[in-house]
Design a protein around this nucleic acid. Structure first.
Length: 871
RNA sequence: GGGGGAUUAGCUCAGUUGGCUAGAGCGUUUGACUGGCAGUCAAGAGGUCAUCGGUUCGAUUCCGAUAUUCUCCA
């Protein structure tokens, strides 16, 4: 059975059990501060489990693209070393939201595996939760009994809290779970050691394939458990592992999901898979990471230097590192594999095809940048050896510096060290790493208290599209403390505050009850919940508050948001329909828009975009907003949807002229475009390969921008006596200036040559040497130049020049090379001489300077220098 | 969010106890050689040493702040 069929059979099976088949959510998570990537199938249903959202259907199933880079079994550094761990994988899952529970979940899982997929019952084992004394929980006998009806009891094993009790986080919904494991070893091996001995023992051929989670508790911040009103089912089955079982191979990497990619990489590297363990690992790493990076970029997550983007960058770099070390790729190669992957999976995940060019460009750019980083690290490494030629062991501190500051991987340091026959002080390296971890942990301490619920089971109504002020009551609130500050998160039953989303920043404002005023410093969305971040602790928690949005900021933000839509449409008109939003920030004072485009925008293109947008503003187009439109209908209207965004079945559509701009958007918008006033692009720049950024201003801020430019031009004009042709005047001035500059340099050179001749003529003979000591009327730099000239005019010349300006005195001493060789040092001499002018100084053997305040001492200083020759 | 780096010519980068008139390669301009191109040689242009402040006789170099960026940890 090929992998496409494996996927299809799963979905068809649950469809037949009355499940709604839903599309995969984006792999990159938005609107959940606790999570950067979707790491399990249940993520997109988290709101439902938390009770923030009511489900649209009671049963669902899907295949979900997931990404894991850390966790108990998912250290990034382990991926590729074995045959079954991945960064990116698909999770097949089925769910019940307060509908069926353990009995059906268990029965259906068994039916699907044994009857539909036809897996041998003898090779399956199941585990159930065995209880936990510390938590006061009994073993899950309910699950045990349902299993007993299907499978012999000796195949049912009790598991620990670690393996068989699932938790979402430190607090929140949780419950016992039941795992299905499969033993794919050969019959002989099974005879020697029964499979039950190997369950949960990290054996590569006795593995978990399906986890059934029974969500029935809520864990509070103090660690205690309470029963949930509605019980849910959450299951997850690894698609790649299942495919492996169905294809009768021993490794995920031997399935039709990976084989074509591995073969292609092997071909490019000129090697064969299966011949050399180190190279095989590298091939698996590249194949696995290619998928993770490609899907992440397709979902809109570009590699960057922090947060989710940084995780993507690290994965990509790991692939480059393995390719570089074990497959001898010393130039970008991963980007060349994107086509193949797109061809292979583009049917199920169409975003791979539509974003292909961008993905390739971004990956290539990242590869190039990292290869440069490696080259720099190697240079540093070589420099270290030059300085410490006889070391036997590389300093751990240096290895850590290479890694920490310059991003040079420690395993490459090790490799290069062993090539030179030396070792690396790994203990010292680990120490540095631990210290850094400790620092970070200290800085990131955040304590979140339990919600204090005042109005249970109340959903928030958002009224902010129509009004900026309303009466509201607190539904729940809690304290969140970090090292630096403490804020209170407040949820209201009704709110005009817009929570940050779709690039538009959260509203600010205040909550007022009696003489209590709470300042709302930001509004955020957490799992679909509108959370007001309030600076003060609410006191009158049971009273009715007046919730007031800062109207001025909101108005400016709204103008900017509508302008963003107008600009997005204009960009597609001017540059082409390959322009897609890659990021957006809409605040009160500006808008920032990142989009895919492959070259710098010309001045004309920028002007065209501005013109189109300003025309649309003057047309005073009405903003037509339709709520609750079915997604298909919205698409029929020509609405632009964004990859990497999760849309429900019902969407909100914002239109400015149905033939111009139609977008899916939850933000606030103007009633008519005229109120935007004016639109000006302030800057256009590149932020990554294939991605450009525009920053623009509207309304008052745009006027201010234009005013400033005009004022600047005016003052320039004024400088030129209001010449008609300022540009010509400036050009002329610059040319004139450089001409004069050259002439002056020439004249000065002639003058100082003349002066030099003069001084040489007047030089005093002292023994074989010539002494020149005089006051000159030059600036310090010219005097230095002069002194330099003089000292090369004869074989033994000693020059002292003194200059005086505004009460400050400078001395310059220069010596011919011959004198330097005979042991004289201008720096030493000048330190003595400087005493006479109440100053200090120093310099090199042949040229030194000093400064002081006592002009009366010049004569004595010169005399003192002369004595050096006389001695 | 925390730590550590970096910022020098259009690009990639040198520039260690603070002191040479701030350099190299590539690119660019001009000229010469060749029938043309490619190429070779020669000459030249191009720098507020990120910004602001401080220490100093003197700061690209040391210190502080800001901006941008890289990197590691969370």
């Amino acid at each position: 059975m090929n992998s496409s069929q494996v996927r299809k059979v799963f979905l068809d099976f649950f469809k037949s059990k009355a499940h709604q088949i839903v599309p995969s959510a984006p792999m990159v998570v938005k609107g959940d501060p606790t999570l950067m990537f979707t790491n399990a199938g249940m993520n997109q249903f988290k709101d439902i489990f938390l009770g923030n959202t009511k489900p649209e259907f009671l049963r669902a199933a899907d295949t979900q693209k997931c990404l894991r880079v850390s966790g108990k079994h998912n250290d990034l550094e382990e991926v590729g070393r074995d045959t079954y761990h991945h960064t990116m994988f698909e999770m097949l899952g089925n769910w019940s939201f307060g509908d069926y529970f353990k009995k059906e979940a268990i029965a259906w899982a068994w039916e699907l595996l044994t009857e539909v997929y036809g897996i041998d019952k003898e090779s399956l084992y199941v585990t159930v939760f065995g209880g936990d004394k510390a938590d006061g929980m009994e073993a899950d006998m309910e699950a045990y009994n349902y299993w007993k009806a299907l499978i012999p009891e000796e195949r049912i094993l009790y598991g620990s809290k670690k393996d068989n009790f699932w938790e979402m986080g430190e607090s929140g919904p949780c419950g016992p779970c039941s795992e299905i494991h499969i033993d794919i070893r050969s019959a002989e091996e099974k005879k020697t050691l029964p499979g039950k001995e190997l369950v949960n023992k990290d054996h590569p051929e006795v593995i978990e394939i399906w986890n059934l989670v029974f969500i029935e508790f809520n864990r509070l911040a103090n660690g205690s458990l309470e029963a949930l009103p509605a019980r849910h089912i959450d299951t997850g089955m690894g698609f790649e592992r299942l495919s492996m079982v169905m294809q009768g191979v021993k490794s995920n990497y031997d399935t039709d999901i990976f084989v074509p990619i591995i073969n292609e990489v092997a071909k490019m590297a000129g090697v064969t898979y299966g011949k050399n363990e180190a190279r095989d690992i590298a091939l698996r790493v590249v194949a696995d990471h290619l998928r993770a990076i490609t899907f992440a970029i397709a979902d809109g997550q570009l590699p960057s230097n922090n947060g989710a983007g940084y995780v993507i960058r690290r994965i990509l770099r790991r692939a480059v590192r393995y390719g570089y070390t074990f497959l001898n790729f010393d130039e970008p190669f991963i980007y060349k594999l994107v086509s193949l992957l797109a061809k292979q999976m583009g049917d199920v995940f169409p975003e791979l095809n539509s974003q292909k060019t961008l993905i390739e460009q971004v990956i290539k750019e990242e590869e190039t940048a990292f290869l440069r980083t490696l080259a720099q690290g190697i240079k540093k490494f070589e420099a270290y050896f030059k300085e410490n030629p006889n070391v036997k062991e590389i300093d751990g501190e240096f290895a850590f510096e290479l890694f920490d500051t310059f991003g040079f991987p420690i395993d490459l340091t090790n490799l290069m060290a062993s090539e030179k026959g030396v070792s690396v002080d790994m203990a010292g390296f680990e120490k540095g790493l631990q210290q850094q971890k400790e620092r970070s942990r200290k800085a990131a301490v955040k304590t979140t208290d339990d919600w204090i619920e005042l109005l249970p089971d109340t959903e928030t109504t958002f009224v902010g599209y129509d009004t900026l002020e309303t009466e509201a009551q607190i539904v729940k609130y809690r304290k969140v403390a970090t090292k630096k500050k403490t804020v209170f998160e407040v949820v209201l039953d009704k709110t005009p505050f817009y929570a940050e989303s779709g690039g538009q920043v959260g509203d600010r404002g205040e909550l007022v009850a009696g003489n209590e005023t709470l300042h709302v410093v930001d509004t955020k969305k957490e799992n679909n919940l509108i959370v007001h971040l309030v600076a003060e602790e609410p006191k009158a928690v049971n009273d009715v508050y007046t919730a007031k949005v800062n109207a001025e900021k909101r108005l400016l933000t709204t103008n900017n948001h509508s302008a963003t839509h107008l600009m997005h449409a204009a960009l597609r008109k001017v540059l082409g329909t390959h322009v897609e939003q890659k990021g957006s920030l809409v605040s009160a004072d500006r808008l920032r828009f990142d989009f895919s485009h492959f070259s710098k925008m010309s001045d004309e293109e920028i002007k065209q975009v501005e013109d189109i947008v300003n025309n649309k503003i003057r047309e005073n187009l009405p903003g037509i907003i339709k709520q609750n439109i079915a997604i298909d209908e919205a698409k029929a209207m020509g609405a632009m949807a964004l990859f990497g965004e999760k849309y429900g079945d019902k969407v909100r559509v914002v239109t400015f002229d149905p033939d111009y701009s139609v977008e899916l958007c939850g933000g606030t918008h103007v009633k008519a475009t005229g109120q935007i006033g004016l639109f000006k692009i302030v800057s256009e720049s590149g932020i990554a390969a294939g991605v450009r950024r525009i920053e623009a201003v509207t309304g008052k801020n745009a006027e201010k921008f234009v005013d400033e430019q005009i004022a600047l031009l005016k003052s320039i004009k004024a400088q030129f006596k209001n010449a008609n042709n300022v540009l010509g005047a400036v050009t002329h001035l610059i040319e004139e200036n450089s001409k004069l500059h050259k002439e002056m340099e020439k004249l000065l050179a002639e003058k100082s040559a003349g002066l030099a001749d003069n001084l040489i003529d007047k030089a005093e003979k002292i023994g074989e040497a010539a002494f020149i000591g005089t006051k000159v009327d030059l600036d310090v730099n010219s005097a230095k130049k002069l002194a330099n000239q003089l000292r090369s005019r004869g074989e033994k010349v000693l020059v002292v020049l003194a200059l005086e300006e505004k009460g400050k005195v400078n001395l310059i001493i220069a010596l011919s090379d011959e004198l330097v060789k005979s042991g004289l040092h201008a720096g030493t001499i000048i330190r003595e001489a400087a005493k006479f002018i109440n100053g200090g100084g120093g310099g090199q053997p042949h040229l030194a300077t000093a400064g002081g305040k006592n002009a009366d001492g010049i004569g004595r200083a010169i005399a003192a220098v002369k004595k050096v020759l006389e001695a």
